[in-house]
């Protein structure tokens, strides 16, 4: 586990800064060097905000429509964006006016999730064509395709120890892949994150968030449950906590009182607790859980519904992408 940074205290969370775009935001990621936060939005561009002063740079020409997913090369020199146009586009992270380095048609339909392998060589993408594809991050060539999901792939995440890739779909199918061999190793039962509403005749839910603890002990899968009215956004946030070794569902992490919300992202914190972003009719919340307690030990309400979240490399700053067009930087410290 990384060292707990000085001053770390989620109960002292506060918003330190916020910057606006022209359209509602849907995605956000810090670059590995911690200089910028990049955002996707309800338009066809990527926004880069400089943390030092909020200076905004628009990255255009890489997509025809919304960008939902962002990932960085291990050294932070390049950022890759994945769009609802099924394209992957590479950019220079810190260029004064970044232009597309390359753009490839990667999936038929939306790209919903990206992740980079721990060794920095592979980019994984998951999309609405029910496929996971692995790309050579250096040149954008296709390395491998992983087929097996029967519905849209909502999330992909590499295991920090490097041999496995995890993927989750709409129906709660959560697969563990040996990505070098291209084989499915085992699956976890994340069905509580999915439901079919017979009255409305819709499937709903899915694995909206995935996070493996840095020590490899826990696998957390986030999303929603109690979807009494999927079409009306009535559902509650839920995180399933699995023991990685035994695959046992150890705990269902909940947030009492948040009657309309979904967990959009999960990040493990340096003190071993889990941070989740819930966004929905109840508002936007950063939720904090200990692995051994069902209920959140703290929650920080954000000023507007949020749709994505990321943790800064310093372990103290949190970026949230909001419907009101703002990206907000919160600090988990009193300092």
């Amino acid at each position: 586990m990384p060292d707990v940074p000085a001053g770390f205290d989620p109960k002292q969370a506060r918003i330190a800064s916020q910057w606006a775009h022209d359209r509602p935001l849907i995605a956000c990621r810090f670059d590995p060097a911690g200089r910028y936060v990049f955002c996707g939005s309800e338009d066809a561009v990527v926004e880069r905000f400089q943390l030092a002063d909020g200076a905004k740079t628009i990255l255009s020409g890489g997509h025809d429509t919304w960008v939902r997913a962002l990932a960085f090369s291990k050294d932070g020199a390049q950022v890759v964006s994945g769009g609802c146009d099924g394209k992957l586009t590479w950019w220079e992270t810190a260029a004064e006016a970044p232009a597309p380095i390359r753009s490839i048609d990667a999936h038929q339909g939306w790209i919903r999730s990206l992740d980079v392998s721990p060794d920095g060589t592979l980019l994984a993408s998951g999309g609405n064509d029910n496929l996971i594809r692995l790309w050579n991050l250096a040149d954008g060539t296709l390395v491998r395709e992983l087929a097996g999901h029967e519905r849209h792939v909502y999330n992909v995440a590499f295991h920090p120890q490097g041999q496995f890739l995890l993927s989750g779909d709409l129906t709660g199918a959560l697969k563990q892949w040996d990505f070098a061999a291209g084989t499915e190793v085992r699956s976890f039962d994340a069905k509580p994150l999915h439901s079919y509403n017979g009255g409305q005749q819709v499937d709903f839910g899915g694995i909206r968030a995935l996070a493996v603890s840095p020590d490899g002990k826990w696998l957390a899968a986030g999303g929603l449950h109690k979807a009494s009215n999927p079409l009306g956004a009535v559902h509650e946030p839920l995180v399933l906590l699995f023991d990685w070794q035994t695959q046992k569902l150890e705990r269902q992490l909940i947030a009492e009182g948040i009657t309309q919300g979904v967990v959009w992202r999960l990040r493990w914190l340096a003190d071993g607790s889990l941070m989740g972003l819930s966004g929905g009719g109840s508002g936007g919340f950063l939720l904090f859980w200990k692995p051994d307690v069902d209920k959140d030990y703290h929650r920080f309400q954000l000023p507007n519904l949020a749709r994505d979240m990321d943790l800064h490399p310093d372990g103290l700053q949190v970026a949230t992408a909001h419907h009101d067009r703002h990206v907000r930087i919160s600090r988990l410290t009193s300092g």
Binding site: G109, N128, Q200, Q201, V202, D203, P230, L231, G232, A233
Partner: peptide, 17 residues
């Protein structure tokens, strides 16, 4: 054909329906 009353996640539901 149901259901298109998509106050929530309009795009996901329209893909499916």
């Amino acid at each position: 054909h149901s259901n298109y009353d998509t106050h929530n996640e309009n795009f996901n539901f329209h893909i499916e329906q």
